[in-house]
Amino acid sequence: MPKIIFVSGPCGCGKSTFVDAYARHLVDKDRKTVYVIHGDDFHGGFVEPEDKGDFFVNGEASDSVLWEDILKFNWDCIIATAGRALQQGMDVLIDYVIETELPRVQNLAAQNGAELHYIVLTADEATIEKRIRGRGDIDMIERAKFLKKELEAMPENSGHLYDNSNKTTEETVNEIVLEDYIV
């Protein structure tokens, strides 16, 4: 049975770093190819004006893409790409923030006869802020703190939270037991 391992969490909690390391761990352990999807790669495909509020064409505000449309597009791409990999018999590791989209991922798993594992990485605010500052995304600090609180309070995330404060990626990889995170 193929697996979907979905890793959510606020910005700066180490989702992408963990997914890359965990994919390598699974390949080394199971000798099976896995497919990794970083949701931010789809988001990165949108190239927009730096300051949308000041961008005009012929005196009119430009047609900028709304955040809701970007998010829907990203999720459509994630689901379609994961579905293709699952149909090829690969396990899929995905990192992206799940706020209300867990039912879409559950449906993907059901349609493909896949076992769904859901991990919500988190860390204390100081760790998250340090990581975000380290990569130069200072504008994301408040969003990360908001997401941390929101994700930790969501009932569907109960039992799926993993705090990696003060832990190396290797420690996190070695401590995560997939069976503990089955949906």
Rank of each mutant, 00 (worst) to 15 (best):
H43D: 03
L161Y: 08
D40L: 02
G89K: 13
I94T: 15
W67I: 01
K167N: 06
L151P: 10
G12D: 03
I141T: 07
L108W: 11
E170T: 11
I132F: 14
G59V: 13
T169W: 03
Y181A: 05
P155W: 06
K3F: 01
V36S: 05
V65S: 09
A110L: 04
P103C: 13
S16V: 04
T122A: 10
E170P: 06
Q87L: 06
G59A: 13
T17H: 06
V7A: 04
K149T: 12
L102Q: 08
I79Q: 03
N112W: 11
E48M: 14
L66K: 15
N166E: 12
A80F: 01
I78E: 02
D124P: 06
A110W: 00
S16R: 11
G134Q: 05
N74Q: 14
T33C: 01
Q87M: 12
S165G: 07
V105N: 07
R31L: 04
A82N: 06
G14Q: 09
M140V: 07
H25F: 15
L147Y: 14
I132P: 07
K149R: 15
S62Y: 02
D124Q: 06
D139G: 12
L116C: 08
G9Y: 01
D51R: 02
T17G: 03
L86H: 05
W67H: 05
A80W: 01
V177Y: 00
D28Y: 06
P103F: 07
D28W: 04
A114R: 12
E175T: 04
I78T: 03
N112E: 02
